[in-house]
Simulated assay, not measured.
Amino acid sequence: MRPVLILQHEPAQGPGFLLQCLREHGLPLELLRPDLGDRPPAYAGDFSGVVLLGSDHSVRDRLPWIDRERLLLANALRLGRPVLGHCFGAQQLARTLGATVNRNPRPDIGWRELWVTPAARHLFDGQERLLSFNWHHDSFQMPPGATRTLFGLHGLNKGFAFGPHLGLQSHLEVTDEGLRQWCAHGRAELATGQGPTVQSEQDILSDLPERLARVRRAARALYHHWIGHLDRRPVAARPRAA
């Protein structure tokens, strides 16, 4: 089958638990780093699905790779290749679908309880609430025709579904090692960003085994649902020249 394309934008924001789920399903993978010079392809038909991870950049930044990613997403939407976006990736998907992405009055950093909308509970193993990790300054508006899946105290639009395409204004893919790297990378921001919407590094890293176990229950259900939409048929071999 065609590989799943993963676009990673920061060293500390890797595919994490999502990578484990994809490998459990035996899916071939291709990982690119557009921020390091990898060129996002323009054609999504070579992939069974496209994943976009988080970034310290804003979707409003005038960078060629950000614009090229949206061209890829537009092609994936036209071809029906499922897209899964986390945080920055969800904002890229929302913007490609015609929604605006705005700066929040305050950053949202730390662990949050989110509510699952009734229409989306089948995506999260029937859960009405879930725990998620957040680190973002921007938020998307709901794309036209999309269904809200998640909302929270610090953001009405925490997730959406548009057919097989899913956007998360949060991180369900986080791991213990990844969170520690992320906190080390963002230590200066955590030290100066105190307030009701920013947790300290100590708070973020406390009770990780219990928190990650809760996150993984919701993440595994959602990722399994998304994987179910991938085209897993074998790729036909091209005929050899006579």
Rank of each mutant, 00 (worst) to 15 (best):
G145C: 06
A146F: 08
T147D: 14
T147S: 15
L150M: 08
L150V: 12
F151T: 13
F151M: 14
F151L: 13
G152R: 03
L153P: 00
H154R: 13
H154I: 03
G155V: 13
L156K: 12
L156I: 09
L156V: 08
N157A: 14
N157M: 14
N157P: 03
K158Q: 15
G159W: 01
G159V: 04
F160K: 02
F160S: 10
A161K: 00
A161W: 01
F162C: 11
F162G: 00
G163E: 04
G163T: 05
G163Q: 06
P164V: 00
L166E: 04
L166C: 00
G167D: 05
L168C: 01
L168A: 02
L168D: 03
L168V: 04
Q169R: 05
L172P: 09
E173Q: 11
E173K: 03
V174Y: 02
D176C: 05
D176Y: 01
E177N: 08
L179A: 06
R180P: 08
C183V: 15
A184Q: 12
H185F: 07
A188S: 12
E189W: 07
L190D: 03
A191L: 03
A191I: 00
G193H: 05
Q194Y: 05
Q194P: 00
G195S: 07
P196T: 12
P196H: 11
T197Y: 00
V198H: 12
V198I: 10
V198E: 01
Q199N: 08
Q199D: 02
Q199T: 04
E201P: 01
E201G: 14
Q202A: 15
L205W: 11
S206V: 08
S206L: 10
S206G: 13
S206C: 12
D207M: 00
D207A: 13
D207C: 04
L208E: 04
L208S: 06
P209M: 12
P209I: 12
E210N: 12
E210D: 14
R211L: 09
R211P: 01
L212N: 10
L212D: 08
L212E: 11
A213R: 15
R214T: 06
V215N: 09
V215G: 09
R216A: 10
R216E: 15
R217E: 07
R217W: 01
A218N: 12
A218Y: 04
A218E: 08
A218F: 05
A218T: 13
A218M: 06
R220T: 12
